[in-house]
């Protein structure tokens, strides 16, 4: 696991270095800041997605939650001049948490596969978003300066956005290692039958994972609004797939049981670095997604190769044992 994160770190540095050699502007502060802010949003969603993926579920609704919560918060600011900035964040988190809770309930109580539940939720939330937005746009003028400051202001040169996300990643990363409940998530994804025999309350844990994923996606909506200072019906479209790609590149097993929050966050940074590097190298933007896809395939092929190798070593160990 450590090796995986180190590997991604090296990849980020290599991509960054090569691009800078080619185009010195890439290493400018502003460029790096832009890179970090963009990655931060995906990394934040990646935290929640990791929790869900680890239990061998998936949350496809995160992108639509970003769009909806961003619009609701923007609309509130527009119609309630002087609403405190903090209230905006709270509303965003609550909106996300409610949707996450519904995802979790339907998945655990009705036992519908989460792929189906959250895909349906993606469409429902998008539809709801379309109804609310109704062709309008929230423009920068109606959002308080103190709110958008989160999107553009920096501390010691680091964007606030990135700092907030880094704190969440660090906190979640620590929690995922250190608490029984979070270890239960890994256990559920690793071997559900054994988890049941160990007396783990799987439903409750999976529900909580969806709840947190939704809440973080809601927070992501607020940060999206702060970063872009405007929102229309298309906000956050397609994020769910980018987030899952970031998680998988970051070493989170798509079938559960393993992966870290830090890995997912680094995966987000790597994807965004490559993305920006291609822009800086004036490569056609169509290549962007193709390269992201190729990276994903490489990551999955690597995981598969690794697990096959382990399986083989297990077999020969078994054989050796018989021979004794």
């Amino acid at each position: 696991m450590r090796a995986r994160e180190l590997g991604i770190g090296v990849a980020i540095v290599v991509v960054f270095g090569l691009t800078t050699l080619n185009n010195h502007a890439f290493a400018q502060i502003a460029s790096i800041q832009q890179l970090l802010s963009g990655a931060a949003l995906i990394a934040l969603l990646g935290v929640g997605e990791t929790l869900v993926l680890v239990t061998n579920n998936v949350d496809l609704s995160v992108g639509s939650i970003v769009g909806l919560s961003a619009y609701i918060v923007g609309d509130l600011f527009k119609h309630n001049q002087g609403m405190p900035v903090v209230a905006g964040f709270i509303v965003a988190i609550v909106v996300g948490a409610v949707i996450g809770a519904i995802n979790g309930l339907v998945t655990t109580v009705a036992r519908v596969p989460s792929l189906v539940v959250t895909l349906a939720m993606l469409y429902i939330v998008r539809g709801l978003d379309g109804l609310l937005v109704n062709g309008t746009t929230i423009d920068p003028g109606s959002i308080p300066k103190a709110f958008t400051a989160v999107g553009y202001q920096t501390l010691f040169g680091i964007p606030w956005l990135a700092i907030i996300v880094a704190v969440v990643v660090a906190g979640a990363g620590y929690a995922m290692r250190s608490f029984r409940a979070s270890r239960d998530l890994y256990a559920i994804g690793s071997n559900p039958d054994a988890a049941a025999l160990a007396g783990i309350p799987a439903e409750r844990r999976v529900f909580t994972a969806f709840l947190i994923s939704g809440a973080l996606a809601g927070l992501g909506g607020a940060l999206f609004l702060a970063l872009h200072a405007q929102i229309d019906v298309s906000g956050g479209t397609g994020y769910e797939l980018t987030v899952i790609a970031a998680c998988v590149v970051g070493g989170v097993a798509i079938f559960g049981g393993s992966g870290t929050v830090l890995g997912a966050a680094l995966g987000a940074v790597l994807l965004n670095t490559i993305n920006q590097a291609l822009v800086a190298s004036r490569v056609s933007s169509f290549w962007n997604e193709a390269i992201a896809g190729a990276l994903l395939l490489t990551a999955i092929a690597f995981d598969r190769w690794l697990s096959l190798r382990v399986a083989r070593s297990l077999q020969s160990a078994k054989g050796a044992h018989r021979a004794l």
Binding site: R183, D184, Y186, A187, N191, D193, A194, A195, I200
Partner: peptide
Amino acid sequence: TLFPDLSVAENIFMGRQ
């Protein structure tokens, strides 16, 4: 009935670490 992704010690103490 082990958790293949978890450590040996965690397998032993799962839920009562």
